[in-house]
């Protein structure tokens, strides 16, 4: 007889079809065209980026579609120095919360074309998109954000979004 069995392969796998639904579908349709889409709440007038279709404060549908600017402000950031499994970007790199002009909600994006030591709150950035023939309904359509050369935004302009 051979050795007793002590281990068992127990792989888990879930194959499924993801349907983003109407609200996220609108955002993705924007990404497919190289445009950030916001959705405005009819009550509080806030514009949500990557909206799920309703205002979390007012609980009403965010029906109004707004095309947002390609530029925004870094509200806060993190410099990634620690290697990890599945890492695809050269270290160190910068992950930042970006508040697009005209939006009332920031989202996370990769910052490039600036040394990690020079990143700062208030940095003005612009989105760099993949070539037009590579655009798709995915955040991967945005390659990264980079400084756009404007003077830093005043803290007052983004202090509500930290």
């Amino acid at each position: 007889m051979s050795e007793p069995v002590t281990m068992m392969a127990a792989p888990m796998r879930l194959d499924y079809v993801f349907t983003p639904g109407v609200a996220q579908g609108k955002n993705m349709h924007g990404l497919e065209r190289g445009v950030f889409i916001g959705q405005r709440c009819p009550k509080c007038k806030k514009v949500y980026t990557l909206s799920r279709g309703s205002c979390p404060t007012d609980g009403v549908p965010t029906d109004e579609i707004v095309e947002l600017s390609n530029t925004g402000t870094v509200t806060t950031y993190c410099v990634v120095n620690v290697p990890f499994a599945g890492q695809s970007i050269e270290l160190p790199y910068i992950c930042a919360q970006i508040l697009l002009d005209g939006a009332n909600l920031s989202f996370m994006g990769l910052i490039q074309e600036i040394p990690a030591g020079e990143i700062r709150m208030g940095l003005r950035v612009e989105a760099v998109w993949v070539p037009p023939d590579e655009l798709g309904p995915t955040m991967a359509s945005v390659k990264y954000f980079r400084p756009n050369g404007e003077p830093d935004a005043a803290f007052e302009t983004y202090k509500e979004y930290l």
Partner: peptide, 13 residues
């Protein structure tokens, strides 16, 4: 436009 995509979640335990 209505999107859907195939996703796979897998853990090789």
């Amino acid at each position: 436009v209505h999107y859907s995509a195939d996703h796979v979640l897998e853990y090789p335990y």
